[in-house]
Design a protein around this nucleic acid. Sequence first.
DNA 1: GCCGTTTTCGGCCCGACTGTTTTCAGTCG
Length: 570
Amino acid sequence: MSEVDKRDLIILLKNIGELLEIKGESPFKSRAYYNASNMLENLNEDIGELIDEDRLKDLKGIGDALNKKITEFYKTGRLQYYEDLKQEFPESLLDILNVPGVGPKKVGILYKQLGIKTVGELEYACIENRLVELPGFGEKTQKKILEGINQYKKYQGRYLYSDAYGQAEVIIRYLGSLKQIEKLEIAGSLRRKKEIIGDIDILAASTDPIPVMDAFTKAEFVRDIIALGDTKSSIYTDMGMQVDLRVVKPEEYPYALQHFTGSKEHNVSLRHRAKEMGLKMNEYGLFKEDGSNVPVADEGELYKAVGLEFIPPEMREDMGEIEAAAEDKLPKLITEEDLKGIIHVHTVYSDGSCTIEDMACRARDLGYSYICITDHSQSAFYAGGLKPDDVFRQWKEIDELNKRGIGIKIFKGIESDILTDGSLDYPEEILKNFDLVIGSVHSNFGMPEHDMTARIVNALNNRYLSIFGHPTGRLLLSREGYDMDMEEVMEEAAKNNKVIEINASPYRLDMDWRLLKKGKDMGIKFAICPDAHNLQGLDDMKYGVGAARKGWLEKDDVINCMDVGSIFRS
DNA sequence: GCCGTTTTCGGCCCGACTGTTTTCAGTCG
């Protein structure tokens, strides 16, 4: 099954779960579909193969019914059950679920009683005051939904990690000045370093929560208060981000930090494990059957209490980390300190805004021992790509800087366009003299999947290509990656010993962390690259490390943790 | 719809806040 079909299947199952909730079916039935969707997303096996070998039903969460449905979808490309469901409840209802404050029950009522099928129709119905008479609705609900729609339309509630982190820092600084707060930390998806953040979760410990909540909801950055309670409050910031603050007693803090860090799926699995051990787990403690609490000083002790190694927050995505922790087989995750050098940097030679020397000195000051300059190649005319003469001029400058000695070794690289036929952008006699060649797709994004795959596979067979740059070409929250068969590309990279880039720009974070573990198991090495276009861009390395950690990578999986001899040609 | 060392039925993780109720359902995390 291709990546695209797999993606479709995962969405299909999730959609069915949501439609069943709207329909009012058993919540456990819905959950079975969500579970299956989530499980398949994290599955590192080809679903088509599993079906062909009749092994699909062996997966935990797949029974007779789902086995049949998934097989039907695989064989025919559609699912009659879903088509029937859509006749009853149009697919467009699912979009309404993205409006904060509107869940499946309300969507069901709105559809059945008012025939509302889209967010636009819902907005109009609010304005016409037609929600107030519905059962379970009222004046305030209608107003809240209208506000929710504005939020939905304006921001769609999703932010880049880097933007959310910047906002969170402001809030942490503010809350940190409150004398009632004893402990304070970012939790949620932000602590797990997800590339896209829905809202910011902050946890505080205090014996006196009321003034904390008061100060929080009255802070300068607050635009609207969504909820205000003794232990939990939510606000929208002036930037439009939702922030949840949870305040617990100091003795509850480790349990709460674990709980509010999530992910939801990780916690479900963890609580399930606790329950099997006769323990009840929630944000207030870990309780034995007699109701007594198992005391812990920190998260590490909490995981230990349920028989697990400490699981770093980045790994808590229910992708097998609990099973690995139970067997003491968690990887020793890469850290920023493991990085020795910088690869993938642009300068004034192409579309960067700083000189080679400026970039190199900054990298040196950040503690790196080498930097590899990789400007754009000649076909990238929009980015000022280097003609052969420019390349020779740049090599000369690099030689001079290295000779003079500025405290960091500079390597000569290039980010070569992968042309439409898969060839690189210079003749062999130039390519062979670079220390390192990154090959990236920058044009003709719209090629059909088969052609794009062939183009990239061709490039991966070029002996001069070292690193395959930003493999999908995605721009988070704005552009989907191009169509290609990632499975085939990864196999080709593994076969040819080609490195795959983890582009550390917070706008890209490409390759996606969800695929890293699989790549690692295939024997692929990765390069964490800032794709820096100015001095600040070099700071993006930390985002790439975050993604690598989410993908279970260790320092031995990442080439810029290795000695230069194994990376560069010269 | 799934699952099983309490197995083929009766469970399925847990709690805060809000609004619409008069004891609770819905939403969210």
